[in-house]
Write a protein that binds this DNA or RNA. Sequence first.
DNA 1: TATGAATGAGATTTCATTCAT
DNA 2: TATGAATGAAATCTCATTCAT
Lengths: 165, 165, 165, 165
Amino acid sequence: MRAAFALVAEVGLEGLRLRQVAAAVGIDQSTLHHHVATKAELVAAVAEHAAALLATTAPPSHLAPADALAAHLDALADLVARRPELFTVTAELDLRARRDPSVRAAVEGQEAGWRAVLTGLFTALGEPDPAARTELVIAAVKGVRLAPDLAPRVLAQLGATDRGK
Amino acid sequence: MRAAFALVAEVGLEGLRLRQVAAAVGIDQSTLHHHVATKAELVAAVAEHAAALLATTAPPSHLAPADALAAHLDALADLVARRPELFTVTAELDLRARRDPSVRAAVEGQEAGWRAVLTGLFTALGEPDPAARTELVIAAVKGVRLAPDLAPRVLAQLGATDRGK
Amino acid sequence: MRAAFALVAEVGLEGLRLRQVAAAVGIDQSTLHHHVATKAELVAAVAEHAAALLATTAPPSHLAPADALAAHLDALADLVARRPELFTVTAELDLRARRDPSVRAAVEGQEAGWRAVLTGLFTALGEPDPAARTELVIAAVKGVRLAPDLAPRVLAQLGATDRGK
Amino acid sequence: MRAAFALVAEVGLEGLRLRQVAAAVGIDQSTLHHHVATKAELVAAVAEHAAALLATTAPPSHLAPADALAAHLDALADLVARRPELFTVTAELDLRARRDPSVRAAVEGQEAGWRAVLTGLFTALGEPDPAARTELVIAAVKGVRLAPDLAPRVLAQLGATDRGK
DNA sequence: TATGAATGAGATTTCATTCAT
DNA sequence: TATGAATGAAATCTCATTCAT
């Protein structure tokens, strides 16, 4: 549900009220329950939606490693600029994942894919410790999620230190 | 309240119940209200407590810049290892700061100090873009908060790319 | 609806859900509403079904009074053994009859017939107070409904005290 | 809670609404929850209250068996006349006991005590099959619960067939 | 300072029923 | 005849907060 997604960005998972979701769509609370059995299920759907959106930043496979990495970072910067709420929602979900198994599944799935892509790129680039560089990128992106205006600068750094080598 | 701090780490700000805080201390709910007027006030106290703990990683001022940076990163790594809950709580507070002004005050205060220290160090080290490096460090630390086991690797990267220059 | 009957025996009238009835028959809830307008109507149908089943224990009219009574008690014992759920359902209906007029109609109709038969038998047997004996039998049967394993013993007592006279 | 007891007699366990109970006492719904954690707990309390009331019909131990039995039946008749709702509630509870363990505990406890008393009496009276007579009495009383006006007649029969021997 | 009782606002969920197809 | 989607009314329970003691 897109409405739920937008509401999470606005009021957080904690402030998410089924009533508001239903109102945003213009239907009754019970009608919402007709489509989504439980609140947890709705949150899980939001989590999977977010994971799918993030997956769009994966670089095309036909690019050379260096270009692929640049393309990926560019896509991330672009997404942060165009849809900052997505990253807010992701931050909320990361926290919720600690307690909600179905959210955890979605979050971990997305992260595993991301990690695989990055590690592959850094390995192809001949990095001495690809896993470590991967974690640095992931951490930096996660850490800058709540400050979209700083994201370009941080992402640029990630590319720069890389090219600098 | 230390009890509240521990509970936030365990069940999150969303799951924080005044009743449990009171029970953890062994007093009645109403007695808790005598010491802390409102729940928001308690959360604010937790936020300030967290900020104070983080401030302990600031490097001693008498060190040379390079040593100071290393000391700071070491202190962070140490803190992550010894008190991982602190970082969980910080992640919760970052999210809450978006909506709760008093939490925001504490979080922004701590972050401003941190930013000042880092920028000072990177400037003293002759970095071309000290502000950018600062944001990278902050983002990376924030991003690795929920995965304490990855923290050493990420912090090592931050030191390495730095020294590598 | 047989499905409703079985469900009442299992989960009680209170736990009866139209959705489950529909599912048991393999049709949609709305389709169920096509056949049975309202839930009360379905319950009334169940009540009439139960009354009809109980009516099968009426003794054949051609028997001598003593044999007829014995036959009736035997038929009851047989029914309790073969279809204990019927008596569970009857107990539920007795309670519901206090508030639902159409259930009351079915229950009272069945009971009036039963009472007439018993009174007739006891009168023919020359009992001093046929009405009282009738009520004893009815009460005993009703009272043993929820404990089918005790029924044979109680029914035997009814026959014994009777014959003992 | 007396209010809950009265309401069960009126609208049945199925129709019991915490709101009404609270209203009957003149307190808020949440205040009711403050005293009784859950609805099931309230029902269990009602069950135990009913069991306690029924226990008052146990005959004094100093009486001779025949007198004790008569006293017990008299006490029952008296209770039916004075407090017919108690028996309505008991009928409700018997049905609920099939699904609610805590109600079952109360109901079975009361019934076990009753059964013990009756069996003791019938044994002392030299009945050939005391257990069977016990079950007849229990069943008859249970069966006449919902028709208090018939109770005297049925109870008289129980005494009569007994004395008739 | 401490507490127990009380409260009100609100949240999720259930369920019989209806409407349009 | 059958259905899926929609609904509204209601029910239980939670929780921060307040009041009187």
